[in-house]
Design a protein around this nucleic acid. Structure first.
Length: 259
DNA sequence: AGGTATGTTAATTG
DNA sequence: GCAATTAACATACC
């Protein structure tokens, strides 16, 4: 569950559990922890009540004490699953939190790229990580400034230090719907294109969140539903693939003319 | 069997 | 010094 919509859906699930008390903490895979050990995480969280939850870009922060936040990043395949204590635990479970009401959170991540840590303050963490403004928490002017003028637009959209939250799949979707070729230089974008990118970014991310961030539930005219080289484009032409920054990029040449 | 996969970071190259 | 590219991490899927 890697990009902003997935993390936002997780945030909303966590928000329903605020006020619950953590009764048990189990770390199955110590290496997912950064800066703390299983015993440290247990003593920090056990008995605490969930106070608040925040998201910035792809990072999720859960407050369980005055200056005590659990910070999660899901990597490529990480997920926070909400279960009851009697349900079977999924594979690749690395962390389990049980609550007084017999519900359970399970952090699972097959590829183990995600990380979990304890932090004092999300704002400090965001600054230390040099994250840009959240993609859903900025106006058009801030967006245009944050996007900058260097490099190509696909890489700029994915650069977490410029704008936080957009990854490989949603950058392709945004560029597709804005009709902009992924290799367009940022410096070549017209003011109208920047405005269009801003509006498209918002509508794409919000549509994904509204559908539970499930790619299979996105509208059929989203290119995300057709991420295969040579597949028919929902609005005409064929989907093409190229590599940008080492990532596969899918786009529709008919709708996204090279500049 | 080998290529590919929603991310980040360090090393390398230009 | 910066921007772009590549490798590495670990596992599943086609």
């Amino acid at each position: 569950m890697p990009e902003l919509p997935d993390v936002e859906v997780a945030r909303r699930r966590v928000a329903r559990d605020l006020g619950e008390r953590i009764t048990r903490v189990e770390v199955n895979t110590p290496r997912v922890l950064i800066g703390t050990k299983p015993a440290g995480l247990r003593s920090a969280l056990a008995g605490k009540t969930l106070r608040a939850v925040r998201r910035h870009g792809k990072h999720l922060f859960v407050q369980a004490g005055k200056d005590q936040w659990l910070a999660l990043h899901f990597g490529m395949t990480g997920n926070l699953v909400h279960l009851t204590t009697r349900a079977p635990v999924p594979g690749h479970t690395h962390l389990t939190l049980d609550f007084a009401d017999e519900t359970r959170w399970v952090y699972s991540d097959p590829r183990l790229f995600g990380r979990v840590r304890l932090i004092d303050d999300p704002e400090e963490f965001i600054a230390a990580k040099r994250l840009g403004p959240d993609a859903l928490d900025l106006d058009a002017r801030v967006f245009s400034d944050a996007l900058g003028r260097r490099g190509i637009v696909k890489s700029a959209l994915m650069d977490q230090s410029r704008i936080a939250g957009i990854g490989n799949v949603y950058s392709d979707e945004i560029l597709y719907q804005a009709g902009i070729h992924p290799q367009t230089r940022v410096s070549a974008l017209t003011p109208a294109q920047r405005q269009s990118l801003y509006r498209t970014m918002r509508s794409v991310l919000r549509a994904a969140i509204a559908r539970g961030a499930d790619p299979d539930r996105l509208p059929d005219d989203f290119i995300t539903r057709h991420r295969h080289d040579g597949e028919r484009c929902p609005r005409g032409g064929r989907v093409a693939r190229l590599s940008i920054g080492g990532r596969s990029t899918y786009y529709c040449p008919a709708r996204q003319p090279r500049v």
